[in-house]
Simulated assay, not measured.
Amino acid sequence: MISACILNEDTDKLSIVQVSPKESLPADVIWLDVNQPDEEERSWLETLFVEDVPEEDEMDDIESSSRFRVGPDGVHILSLFPQRLSNETRGVNMSFTMRKNLLISFREDDISIVRLLRYYIRHDKVEIRSALDILLKLQDLKVDQLSDLIEDAYFTLEQTSDQITDDSHVKETLEELILQEELNSQILQALHDTRRALRFIRKTFESYIDDRQSRVLEEVLNDIESILPHTSFISNKINFQLEASMGYTNQKQNSIIKIFSVAAVVFMPPTWIASVYGMNFKFMPEIEWYYGYPVSIGMMILSAAITYFFFRKKGWL
């Protein structure tokens, strides 16, 4: 699917329309958004590019030379966007090509930030005057979303901290902490990638950026710098809660093992007495004793009681 964002230069109004491969590129287009293109759409897009149209596997490169470069078609940027699916978050790469006042974006997933920007455009809730404004706004919205994810992580960790000593939620707590650790890693990766992208944009478009765009760019970079320490704090908090949860679980297991160990020691003397008088030797004087049975039972109870109270006095119980 291909959609175009058109800027009316007379009214400075934005509109979004669907583009068919059978049509020519509309005039005054500043953003061409390509989402999961089919073969016909790819063939049409190839007429707009000197280089090959980006493939899905090429959008996962991590080296800087592949993610940020200047080529025959213009400036190429690969940017990582967080995508929330149920309780999981994963990073989705989105490819941008900037040529003069046209931004062409490629994506193989439905990214929520793109939907949000399109909503703002349709309802005239965003100030956009050029293709570069769209690129900067997408990065700005991404950082806002990452900030919201961090706030959600703080709230979740407050809940898990109250469940660490709750035996009925041990498994759920551990699973949630593992999910939060993965989420925090995704946030950290996206923040670093966005910072690299913004610095590349500032350097590459230095002669084109106006004062307003420069302020936006610096504000987003400052937001990233202010958010990054929170990821370290969250990571430390997650690790602490994981260690505390595992420590509590080990302590409970040790208590159970301790009970069995004490029980084994307490019943060891009675077992020994029962074993002695269970022998079938001919010469055992107590076997023919009239009071032998109750005395042996009493000795078993007394030996177990002495062992138990000895453990209590030592503080081992």
Rank of each mutant, 00 (worst) to 15 (best):
D223P: 04
L117R: 08
R115G: 14
I297K: 10
K203N: 15
G315F: 02
D148H: 12
Y291F: 15
D210C: 08
K258E: 12
I128S: 04
V75P: 01
E40A: 11
A4C: 12
K314V: 13
L188K: 03
Q18F: 07
A305G: 10
Q36V: 02
R90I: 10
H123V: 05
F49W: 10
L242R: 13
N236A: 14
R202K: 08
E56A: 15
E181L: 14
E286C: 10
K142Y: 00
T89R: 01
E288G: 13
F309D: 07
K13V: 07
V53F: 03
D52I: 04
K100G: 08
K171H: 10
W272K: 10
L146F: 02
D210E: 08
R195M: 09
N101E: 09
K171E: 12
I2P: 00
Q18D: 14
R215M: 15
E41I: 04
P269C: 10
T307K: 09
I224K: 00
F81D: 00
K137F: 09
Y208E: 11
Q163C: 05
A190N: 10
D52M: 06
E108S: 13
Y208A: 12
L146C: 05
D193L: 02
F260I: 01
D223G: 06
A4V: 11
S3V: 09
K313H: 07
G71H: 10
E56C: 13
Y120I: 09
L317A: 04
M94I: 02
V53R: 05
R69W: 10
F240S: 06
F309Q: 07
N8C: 03
P54T: 00
N87G: 11
D152W: 04
E63C: 15
K282A: 14
G91V: 14
L116K: 07
A4H: 13
L85C: 10
M284F: 05
